[in-house]
């Protein structure tokens, strides 16, 4: 198949459709509105449902309902909208339902601004909503990886019956790159015996619920769910490592920031500085082991984010004091440039 040129937001929408998503509930917000616009054009042509909800809160609860009925459902938003959706995400996690939530991150807090940011890391991986729950968070760094991650997000959601977030900054949502879509002919979506599809008087009713009257019953359920989270931490960590074998300094960055960091690392290598990169692709589960191992071999780790320092906390936990962990961040919608990252590298070697 010929490659096509797609905007990140369009690529997410097209990949979701090809992954079998036929139910999309959205509400416009810059810089992710193209996802809704694409779904609005395409869904009616393929027998799917596109619905622009009256609010983000409504959209996520529509996803809750659709996921309960066993279909692949998705919603998308940007930072302030994800804050509104967080209550619904907690309910979905509490009812063990699979769905995909897209966050194309913009600057915050509050209304913040429409330029790119990565300041929703805490919200995504530490639980934006209430209660003991986890959400798998996938953070691609190219448009092709956005396509692949969208398929992955739906598959992981179904496999573990839980919400999965696809997270990119505004730059990834708006930029264009060539993409190819995988062949999906013959791919069958998984059966969902737990879904509320009607008993046809052949089985007991399935119930979608997150309310438990007895505390010990709820505790047992959550503890059981935690076994699933541990399994995910063991099996689903994804990361990219580049130039880490001989590195004297390791940079840790995700998403589009990792592309900027790679340009800085290239310059450092040209000037004799052995710099390497660890790029978390899953933000939860976090690639702690590889960072922990690297910390024992390098002079320093430098974490670069478009925030005041959020992922750096997990990097420090992983490094566990084995080497100094420095931080460089830009925020408020300001995108770091390779030259600035290169200057930071030089400070620590």
């Amino acid at each position: 198949m010929d490659k096509v040129l797609m905007k990140g937001n369009e690529a997410i929408a097209e990949a979701a459709i090809r992954a079998g998503c036929r139910h999309f509930f959205g509400y416009p917000i810059t810089p992710q509105t193209e996802i809704s616009a694409y779904m609005a054009r395409r869904m009616p042509k393929i027998g799917g449902t596109f619905l622009q909800a009256e609010s983000e809160v409504a959209a996520i609860n529509m996803v809750y309902g659709a996921a309960g009925a066993g279909v692949r459902a998705m919603t998308s938003s940007s930072s302030p909208g994800i804050s509104l959706k967080s209550e619904g995400i907690s309910y979905i996690a509490g009812a063990d339902l699979p769905c995909v939530i897209v966050n194309i991150v913009r600057a915050g807090p509050g209304l913040g601004g429409i330029q790119p940011a990565q300041s929703d890391y805490f919200q995504a991986v530490k639980g934006g909503g209430h209660g003991d729950y986890r959400m798998i968070v996938v953070a691609p760094s190219s448009i092709q990886e956005i396509v692949d991650s969208t398929f992955l997000a739906f598959d992981l959601a179904d496999k573990y019956r839980m919400p999965v977030m696809l997270m990119g900054d505004g730059m990834l949502g708006q930029m264009m790159e060539p993409v190819a879509f995988p062949d999906t002919t013959g791919v069958k979506l998984p059966e969902k015996e737990w879904a509320t599809t009607g008993t046809k008087k052949m089985r007991k009713p399935n119930i979608i619920n997150s309310l438990y009257i007895q505390p010990d019953e709820l505790e047992a359920l959550i503890k059981n769910r935690w076994k699933k989270y541990i399994e995910i931490e063991q099996n689903e960590v994804r990361f990219e490592a580049e130039g880490t074998e001989d590195a004297e300094i390791i940079l840790v960055a995700y998403g589009a920031t990792a592309r900027i960091v790679k340009a800085a690392i290239k310059k450092a290598r040209e000037n004799g500085i052995k710099a390497g990169l660890i790029r978390p692709i899953t933000l939860w589960p976090f690639p702690s082991d590889v960072i922990s191992a690297a910390a024992k071999k390098v002079k320093a780790i430098l974490c670069v984010e478009m925030s005041m320092g959020q992922m750096v906390e997990d990097v420090r936990l992983s490094a566990a004091g084995a080497c100094p962990v420095h931080f460089y961040g830009r925020t408020g919608g300001v995108v770091p440039i390779p030259a600035d990252v290169y200057d930071e590298i030089r400070r620590y070697v």
Partner: peptide, 8 residues
């Protein structure tokens, strides 16, 4: 150009 295409 994107930030990483602009050179260091």
């Amino acid at each position: 150009t994107l930030p990483w295409e602009r050179g260091v």
